[in-house]
Simulated assay, not measured.
Amino acid sequence: MRSTSSPEDLTTRARIRDAAVARYGREGFGVGLRVIAQDAGVSAALIVHHFGSKDELRAACDAHVLAAIRESKERALASGGAQDLLLQLASMDEYAPLVGYALRSLQAGGELAKDFVEHFAADAEAYIAEAVAAGTMRPSRDEKARAHYLTVQGLGALLLDMTLNPPADPTDVVAILHGYRNRMMLPTVELFTHGLMTDNTMLDAYLLYVSDPPQTSTPARSV
C-alpha cells in the first residue's frame, strides 16, 4: 500500500502503524502482532517495544486515521472547488486503508467504535464550521446535531452498501470504495447541493410539533 505518512514521518514506529492500519482494515482486529510485524518488516518484539501492547497499537492507529481523514476533509470542504473534489476522488486508492480501518472499527463495536464515531462527529463539526465561515456551506439550527447526523449517515450508508453489495474479495477495500462511489456519489452530491424539498412545509410542521406537540388522548375504557 502507499504509505499514509509524510516523508519525515517514515520511522519504524510509523511503518509499523501504517502496516497495522492496512492489515486491520483488510482483515479486522483479530490479526496477531506477528502478521503485522511481517508486513512491517520488523519483529513482534519491536512492536511491543514501540507501542507496549496491541491495545496501544490500536490506539495509535485510531489517532492516525482520525488525523489523516480530518486533514483530507478539511481541504475538500474548506475550498469547495470542483477541482479539489476530483482530486479527492482520484486519490481514493490512497485513502482506502484509512476508510477500511474506520469500517472495521465500526463493525467491531464496543466503546472504541463509539469513541471513533464521536471523534469523527467532533471533527466534522469543526470543519463544517470552517466551511460555513468560508461561505461554502449553509449554517444549521443545530450544528452539533447536523455534524453527528452526517457522520452516522455517511458511515452507515457505506456499511449498508457493503451488506447489500458484498464484494467478491472482502479484503479489497479499494474495490469496495470504487463500487460505493459508482453507485452513490451522484445522488449524494446532488442531494447535498440542491436539497430535496421544494419548500419549508415539512420543516415548519416539525418545528411546530416539537415546540407544541399534540397531546396523546387516552381512549375511554368501556364499562
Rank of each mutant, 00 (worst) to 15 (best):
M1C: 07
M1K: 08
T4Q: 10
S5N: 14
S6Q: 12
S6E: 14
S6M: 10
L10E: 14
R15V: 12
D18I: 00
G30Q: 02
L33W: 04
V35M: 09
Q38L: 11
A45T: 03
I47A: 02
H49W: 06
S53H: 03
D55M: 08
L57I: 05
A68H: 06
E71M: 10
E71R: 14
S79D: 10
S79K: 08
Q83L: 14
Y95T: 00
A96D: 07
L98I: 05
V99I: 15
G100Q: 04
R104H: 12
A108R: 13
L112Y: 13
A113T: 03
F116V: 05
V117N: 04
A121E: 05
A122F: 01
A124Y: 03
E125N: 11
Y127N: 07
A129H: 10
E130R: 15
A131W: 02
G135R: 05
E143F: 01
G154P: 04
T163K: 15
T163F: 07
D172N: 06
D172M: 01
V173S: 05
I176T: 08
H178N: 11
R181E: 08
R183M: 04
M185Q: 08
T188G: 06
L191S: 13
F192P: 00
H194L: 12
G195Q: 06
T198V: 13
N200L: 09
L203C: 09
P213Y: 04
T216V: 12
S217V: 12
T218P: 00
P219R: 03
P219A: 01
